[in-house]
């Protein structure tokens, strides 16, 4: 239990360190980009190049990703403040969710399914030549 806690803290410090670096980069370059996403990219690159060892962050990452939904609940509570705004716009909210989600699923699914098939044929033809 205690060992897990220490493990978690080490990983958390590494992650927050990446946030700090990207925050500083964004501030210095006046970049209009969310720092935590820049942190994500830097973190993935650091893992791939081996600057950060996988064993230090694995435990923390797995726990954080597994419980990610929980960190969102306070935002649901915050909806109470925007009650009136939602009441006025509920139809567009609903329509946007239903239509766009369906179209994205259909479009991406078809795109990848036939894209891979097309590329496979293409590669075969290249090999034949």
């Amino acid at each position: 239990m205690f060992k897990n806690f220490i493990n978690f803290c080490i990983g958390l410090i590494i992650l927050l360190f990446f946030y700090f670096i990207s925050f500083v980069i964004c501030k210095l370059t006046h970049l209009n980009f969310p720092p935590s996403i820049l942190g994500l990219v830097l973190f993935a690159m650091a893992l791939i190049t081996g600057i950060v060892k996988e064993k230090y962050v694995q435990f923390t990452c797995e726990i954080l990703i597994k419980n990610m939904a929980m960190f969102l609940i306070p935002f649901w509570g915050g909806l109470i403040v925007y009650e009136k705004l939602l009441e006025k716009n509920w139809l567009s909210v609903l329509l946007v969710i239903l239509i766009t989600t369906t179209i994205i699923i259909v479009a991406t699914g078809l795109f990848v399914e036939y894209g891979t098939k097309f590329l496979r044929l293409h590669n075969m033809r290249e090999q034949d030549d």
Binding site: A44, I48, I65, N67
Partner: peptide
Amino acid sequence: DFNTYNESAKYITFLLTPATIALGYPVF
């Protein structure tokens, strides 16, 4: 009141930042 609720709930929202960065892990 939302402010009463958020007084301590904001520490949970804070974890969203490291969680975003942790998403780099599956990519790796």
